[in-house]
Design a protein around this nucleic acid. Structure first.
Lengths: 192, 192, 192, 192
DNA sequence: GATGAATGAGCATTCATTCAT
DNA sequence: TATGAATGAATGCTCATTCAT
């Protein structure tokens, strides 16, 4: 029965993503999700304790998917600028690869009370490697001596911001736009 | 006859803002708004044709409030960099002056279907002067030759992004942070 | 101020008739009536104690209008068959002259709880002359020795019944149909 | 899983009938129906998509019940007058057997917008056998050469009309009245 | 007399969740 | 495991009626 289970969970997760992107998350009812996933509402409650629990798990799964791409070809020993840009490029790649999932993640990020507090982590929380990189850049005076959140705003959030606009227009970031975003992010953050 | 009670409209608007910031907008019910405003639900429907209409009007009022600050001491004839920074400073000032309202505007901006399409304008739409400034900078080759949305991401949206984080932490942008945001925005956008 | 009053009452009465025929009487709200009449809801309550009172008065007015036509050229001394047919012809004339009003009367007749009990009188209650005629016919053995309601069914109600069907089809009774109805009514009622 | 509770549907149908006859159909609210049926409002929406759907199904069920009686001992080859009277007697029997249901059907028939258009058929539409009989009588010159609706008025509708009056008086048609109604209907319709 | 403002109670419908099988 | 049946509480909205001017 293991495979059966997994396929149902998968279907439910995808349904959440579809419904949010299709109807907006304020129309996100368990009935709609279950219907779209082709399972009964009661079945949904076998896998998840409640709606919040389910959304939290979807969120986490999406986050893992994107984080998984984040450190592709990432060399913690390489030169700082290269690492910095590598990270952002990977992030841009990730949200271009999974545009609907990225859109859902943005929804979760700007609506913290959709999921339980403990499951939710700020958009800042891109994990230890990012924090390490930031600290490294700070110590070596390669980036401005500002708070980490301000960097997030000009890096990941700036990319997200454009991606969101493009997603609303039914597009994804172009290769050129990614290059431009990275250039501007670097220009914004680097210490002169 | 009874005279129109302007204070009720004010109370309703404030209630919308409070409820969105306290309970999140997915718990934004007409009943809750009316209760918080101290009026009956039926009364609400005297002033607004429906929920969407009400939210639209709240949105517009907030937008006007912020836009009103935007062109304070703004000199369209002044040097470009100064104008650029003036605009962003004014924007930062505005959202620091009305932090709850700015938070609400962010919610509306990322949830377009909360309000009628005609009332809604993209976060990009900061009005003609901004568009003029962008075009001017482009023509004079003072800023990068990129699409306007990408600039929005590194200017208004970057500021918004940090403001949102601070708001969630129960803070507002500090004077220093505003300075830093403006510096970074300019570094990101300017043509080298 | 007398004329002003009358015109408002007239407008309200007409509005009731229009709304019932247009939207059906289950969508008959005082707000809709007042709007259509061009007066405020509160004004309506100056003229009538409540909705039921108003509808009752409209009903009575319509009834009077139709009853007024009923005894046109009616000769209580004339031969029975002629009187019988005269009455029905007058009735048919009346509901052809005021088709919307007749339609409204039918609604009231089949929904007794729309108006107060005291104002409401059974469709049978066409007044004393009709009762007299019935008694006369009975005594002279010119009509069947049945209960009065059964005659109503084959006379006024039969005419109403066809008129209603025609009204729903957007038509009124034709001259021929009226003749046929009267012939059949007489054939049904007369004693052989 | 829980099994479908047929008794609930039955209770709901009966509740509709009761409420219409006791409170009139303009006070026919879903809440009242559910309460009277002893089920929750939400349960009602498991069985019916909406109020209109429910009323439509009640209507259809009642219609079927009455129609089922209509062709009892009906012999399409028998003499015309006998068939004519048989049909009316069956109809009278039906509405005497189910007086509350017949009353409800009358309400539905005179308020077409209570149910969906497709479910609704005019009171005339008593099915093909009635139409056949009418055509037969017409061709053989056994009945007057009039439109079908006019016959309906002097047959089914006349019976209905008296039945309605009696129902309002808390009675049903007596055996004698049925005989009288049929005699009069035949007298009205037959060709001399 | 006239009316815009105001409301409690009610409307049809949907919600997230649990039950019984 | 799986699900149709069931529901109390909530949803957005409208009602007939009254108030204050």
């Amino acid at each position: 029965m293991r495979t059966k289970d997994e396929s149902k969970i998968e279907a439910l997760h995808q349904a959440v993503i579809d419904v949010i992107n299709h109807d907006g998350y304020q129309n996100l009812s368990v009935a709609k999700i279950a219907k779209k996933a082709g399972v009964s509402v009661a079945t949904l409650y076998i896998y998840y304790s409640d709606k919040k629990d389910m959304l939290g798990k979807v969120y986490l799964k999406i986050k893992d998917l994107i984080d998984a791409k984040l450190f592709n070809e990432f060399d913690p020993q390489g030169p700082f600028e290269q690492q910095f840009k590598r990270l952002l490029r990977n992030y841009a790649d990730a949200i271009c690869t999974y545009p609907e999932k990225a859109a859902v993640m943005r929804v979760f990020n700007s609506n913290p009370n959709l999921v339980a507090e403990d499951v939710y982590s700020q958009s800042m929380d891109l994990g230890k490697p990012v924090a390490d990189l930031y600290r490294h850049g700070l110590e070596e005076k390669l980036i401005r001596q500002y708070e980490p959140e301000i960097f997030i705003s000009f890096t990941f959030n700036a990319i997200d911001s454009l991606a969101q606009i493009r997603f609303m227009q039914g597009k994804t970031l172009t290769k050129d736009e990614v290059d431009q975003l990275i250039e501007m992010a670097w220009a914004a953050c680097k210490q002169n």
